[in-house]
Design a protein around this nucleic acid. Structure first.
Lengths: 334, 334
DNA sequence: ATTAGAACTGTAAACGTTTGCGACCTTTTG
DNA sequence: CAAAAGGTCGCAAACGTTTACAGTTCTAAT
């Protein structure tokens, strides 16, 4: 359990431990025979450099704190996957924290990460209020927000063009012949406001009536969508398509529709948003708007690295393009 | 960006920094007025203790390395979620590493975690060979394996009773009247060998013929299952039920069956293993065997904590009970 | 008044690195 | 042949904590 230190190999090599350190770090002021001898010895003795000691003097931990509301969420776990891969490829490790449902815990874990001396923080915020929530800390450490649009807050973030996503989605439905499109979802967070805006813009452009059905749940989940959809379907269905603000909601709608024998897509077309893996499953085959999660993740760590390594001070709002994934839940009318 | 240290608040309080440290750690040998004054001051000055410095002297980082093949996998992200929550509740933070598909990278990240001085490692192994793969490191740091059965290797692990899982699954099919049950999946890893064994045991007990269709893919994914199932369904279907060794495979089978108009469950009953969230989706509604992921995760961190904090030396094999989740893909015959 | 003891606080070492600076040795140059 | 230059290497400080030990002050008892 006792690990071998620089001092140990120095003693074995008959040099000072400064020399060993330099040999390992490839300093030019070390003779090549000495270097090779030392490196070989390190290998034999199983030396691995102690990163916490190194962090101490370097004032840099090569650690990125990743805070997500819940890693079991498909959207976030995919972001996390690409973020970790990309970070590690650049020498950083990820410290993972679930911020759970409440803002208090989000604040707690950010504070905790600060104590851990992370070089930067990558955060998938719980809501648009997260910015206010952790503002006290964001000037103490490079931070980039991921997945949520913070509008013109003075913070770096990367997100998709949510408004454009719903726009191209409704345009798609319009082109399919739909004239009565219901928008299903909440509009509390900025992200969802923007999604609603894209729908509204398309409606205006194509001369459609704007019709909203708002979920009052704070979190969009399959079950919440299901509950709301049951309510929705208990009333007359005088629309031919539903645009669900998230895939989770769409899945809930799908469940309710199946239960109430409302055929999707024959009776009703349905489109979601996010393109979480579940939407591609057999029988589900949900038409949706893709968020380029991989690009989002790697761009976010690139931005963070830039802040960390170059001390870049300003903030950048990176808005990536969503795309339409045509699958089986939308049908052409007539 | 410059953070405030013990020395800073010591100067402000007019005491030595040892006193501040003691006040914060609740040492009994500090006057209560001094303590409160110092604590208040720390608050005002925004002091947070530097964990890397603390780790240096304490020889303990309160860090647990979590290595999973891929965090985007639903099974693993759920394990990770509960593991992180439970770990943090006990004062530990999680360092996340994806080990990817190859053993080399698994070894690399474990080594990396060692350099980071983690107190322990929680690993969801890529296969049963992972034990051999990282054996060189498992005696340098407390380690527990999660999700894979290592049989009687001298290592701690927590897993489900895989054999029992397939046993109760086939028994369920038998009770439903099925007499020709095909087992679909590979048998390379120990886990899958055990699953096959449970099926075989049930077949023997109920006098059924054992019928295997082996996937030769090393990873079970929806697409691999789909490819194999297309092959399978191109031959005569002289069985009434399929036991898929994983939910992913089952989902692939479902897709192929739908495409080839083989009705599930009417023509064919289908049962999976793992109970990943996708199986509960509308229209999917896959009958499956549940792995108690939450219990597995918290038990694993409990075991790890025990090793870390009490220096427990032996190893324990924790085998949890699987359970049958009855859903819509199995039908009673006649 | 002296002192034993308690209560509190300060000093300094230690943890394992990195790196500026100085020292030594060898080689080259005038 | 002397001295400058260049190539190697060691010394020691620093990073921010924790904690054993020593030191100081104060109370209370003799």
């Amino acid at each position: 359990m006792k690990s071998v230190t620089l001092k140990d190999v120095a003693k074995a090599a008959g040099v000072s431990y400064a020399t060993v350190s330099r040999a390992l770090s490839g300093s030019p002021q070390i003779g090549s025979e000495t270097r090779e001898r030392i490196i070989k010895l390190c290998d034999e003795m199983g030396y691995t450099t102690n990163y916490v000691a190194r962090s101490m003097v370097m004032k840099k931990t090569d650690l990125i704190g990743l805070v997500v509301p819940s890693i079991e969420n498909q959207f976030m776990s995919e972001l996390a996957y690409y973020a970790e891969m990309s970070a590690r490829a650049h020498g950083y490790n990820i410290m993972l924290c679930n911020s759970g449902p409440d803002l208090k815990q989000e604040k707690t874990v950010v504070k905790l990460l600060l104590g851990r001396q992370v070089d930067g923080i990558l955060i998938v915020p719980q809501s648009s209020r997260s910015y206010e929530n952790i503002r006290a800390y964001t000037d103490q450490v490079p931070t980039v927000f991921l997945g949520e649009n913070l509008r013109d807050q003075p913070q770096s973030y990367v997100t998709v063009d949510n408004s454009r996503g719903t726009y191209i989605g409704t345009k798609y439905l319009y082109d399919l012949g739909h004239r009565d499109i219901l928008y299903f979802g909440r509009r509390h967070s900025t992200t969802h406001q923007l999604r609603a805006e894209g729908y509204m813009r398309a409606c205006q452009e194509f001369g459609l009536q704007q019709r909203f059905f708002n979920s009052d749940f704070s979190r969009s989940s399959i079950n919440n969508g299901y509950q709301m959809a049951k309510d929705l379907f208990s009333r007359p269905i005088d629309y031919s398509a539903i645009f669900a603000s998230t895939d989770s909601n769409a899945l809930g709608i799908l469940k309710a529709a199946d239960e109430m024998h409302i055929d999707i897509p024959d009776r009703l077309s349905l489109i979601g948003f996010d393109n979480i893996p579940s939407t591609g499953l057999p029988r589900i085959d949900l038409t949706t708007i893709e968020q380029p999660k991989r690009d989002m993740a790697v761009q976010a760590v690139d931005m963070l690295r830039d802040k960390i390594e170059n001390g870049t001070q300003g903030y950048v709002h990176q808005i990536l393009l969503p795309s339409l994934i045509k699958r089986g839940t939308c049908r052409a009318l007539d």
